[in-house]
Design a protein around this nucleic acid. Structure first.
Lengths: 190, 190
DNA sequence: TACACTATTTGATTTAAGTCAAAAGAAAAA
DNA sequence: TTTTTCTTTTGACTTAAATCAAATAGTGTA
């Protein structure tokens, strides 16, 4: 999904507005395993994923990587807390496959919010959509067994589940990779 | 905290704008245990809590009430998924103490978003704030022991932790009430 | 005050998932 | 192709928290 399709799907921008907005996004090709933001840095960019995928993760007390979220095609990717609050990031932001991203800085985005109030709507909608998804994950994590959580993962990120290392998914789902391996072995849900 | 203080703290509305906006909120006194929204209903109202508190919960397969969120003074309360998507609510919305709420309908709110683009900013900010909080809970639930999760609860809702039945808190934290009772018994954190 | 009802605590037992350790399989590098 | 390195699987054992069951403690009210 291209970024202009995405924008138009949320808000009916005119052709002129769209051109102006798109001019503020910079296309970037990023190769696998590249880290976009490190823990402690202030994340100054919002990325739209046109192709590829990424994840956010952090290092727990034991130094183990814990995946916080996956970002697939057609989504915005950033260190949410850091970008919006402009505070040091709790997370690393990493690209998991060679990807094509569209990047915009916080100041440019704020300028667009100011210039086009319609953009605020887009921001609000992207934010509530993310909120809904996080709430879904929360419910999965909080009340479901390891096996059900894996089924949730398959429905939420069907395209991603088989493209990333098992360990990344296990930590995303709050279980060990041994457990996830055993779940996969015992066939799919039901 | 009053609703006008809250609004002004987020966006610098003029006195006139503020009056107009406030006119669309209707003050309601709601008594303890009243249910504002039921599972399956479409939630048409957003409430600002001036005094008192509420919670959202749902019934799991076994018919047990599972608390999803607490709403304290100075926060917006609603069935998030239902209100924003205008879809049948997954949750009940209940008032836990005699409360004073300010209510606005979805259509009035949308009209305000349209009339005052500044409102969009308020919506976006309220939404990202909620997102941050949900992410915090998620991290607590996903990676912490029952005892640490209780400490998280005390920090997130210090004023609420001792005002609601233990069972409500236990289900919010994804543990049984027996476990929570044992945690409380063994003194506070560390 | 006593009764009924609800909430909390305590005890005994079970279990889902974690931990630790090592083997097997894949992918990358030499 | 062989070696090295990383990823996934398997096995044995442990444990935090759940479950089941019952006893207290509180609260409202007749």
């Amino acid at each position: 999904m291209s970024i202009s399709d995405f924008l138009v799907s949320l808000v009916p921008f005119t052709q002129t507005e769209l051109q102006d907005i798109l001019a503020h996004f910079k296309k970037e090709s990023v190769s696998k395993n590249q880290i976009l933001v490190r823990q402690g840095q202030i994340c100054n960019a919002l990325y739209f994923v046109e192709h590829g995928m990424g994840r956010s993760y952090y290092l727990n007390e034991g130094g183990k990587e814990i995946t916080q979220w996956f970002f697939g095609v057609g989504k915005f990717m950033t260190s949410v807390d850091s970008f919006f609050q402009q505070s040091p990031s709790l997370y690393y932001l990493e690209v998991l496959e060679d990807s094509v991203l569209y990047r915009i800085s916080k100041s440019d985005l704020d300028a667009l919010f100011y210039k086009y109030p319609k953009m605020e709507k887009m921001g609000r909608m992207a934010s509530t959509e993310m909120l809904t998804r996080v709430v879904n994950k929360l419910n999965a994590i909080q009340f479901q067994t390891a096996r059900e959580r894996y089924d949730y993962m398959l429905s939420e990120f069907p395209d991603i589940a088989y493209r990333v290392p098992l360990g990344h998914i296990a930590s995303y789902l709050g279980m060990t990779q041994e457990t996830l391996s055993r779940i996969r072995k015992n066939g799919s849900g039901t």
